[in-house]
Amino acid sequence: APHGPGLIYRQPNCDDPETEEAALVAIDYINQNLPWGYKHTLNQIDEVKVWPQQPSGELFEIEIDTLETTCHVLDPTPVARCSVRQLKEHAVEGDCDFQLLKLDGKFSVVYAKCDSSPDSAEDVRKVCQDCPLLAPLNDTRVVHAAKAALAAFNAQNNGSNFQLEEISRAQLVPLPPSTYVEFTVSGTDCVAKEATEAAKCNLLAEKQYGFCKATLSEKLGGAEVAVTCMVFQTQPVSSQPQPEGANEAVPTPVVDPDAPPSPPLGAPGLPPAGSPPDSHVL
């Protein structure tokens, strides 16, 4: 702990390049250690104090505000290329306290504490009166929508059977009545199109994750599901040195490559028009 009488700290500008460098190391730390949910990006540096360390180095105490992006933590896309979740999509902010040790010009994290919270319903209503708010992830309609979407995905998929990993975001849309859900999946050793019991399928040793967005629309006499999934390239199990760019996201279509590209679904949370097609609607 750096605190104590007689110790003098300096307070650089929050927008100093050195402060920003420390904040970006903190952001990387968050995104590499989040067990679920979405990557966060730096929004604002609130405060910074720099304490001298004995025998050498400096300790940066830094408070930062972050914002949720649209990239799931399992998505290998670098956070710099991830879009920030917009207010009308019901943004989520993070509030973090970090301590980073700077030694020989390099930062390392020694302490981290973050809380995240969704924007208030009132703020969402200010920018969009009709936009749906975030729904509890264990809501029965949300869970049903995710399971129905995954079943539809597996039924159309020529590759591995995928299991539901995590429901990461959901919104209940009043008009037209529908449930929008985002979830992650994990590949198994079963073939998707074969009718197999999920209990008999094993997760692949070399994990293959996917991220899906789905809308379950209630119709007269039934429901209609639209789902797009992006399956991420399998990451090597060993930590061998990788060539430059090897960690970048490489979308792998897992459905019929002749299928038409994704039409806009009109659901919240989808990429803006003009985004490159990275998956297929089933």
Binding site: Q11, C14, I45, D46, D119
Partner: peptide
């Protein structure tokens, strides 16, 4: 003789060191 009235040093806007700039939007 025209005398320039004394003018104080041009004071630019004072930028507080913290908090820093907002990169996206405030929630």
């Amino acid at each position: 003789t025209v005398v320039q009235p004394s003018v104080g040093a041009a004071a630019g806007p004072v930028v507080p060191p913290c908090p820093g700039r907002i990169r996206h939007f405030k929630v």
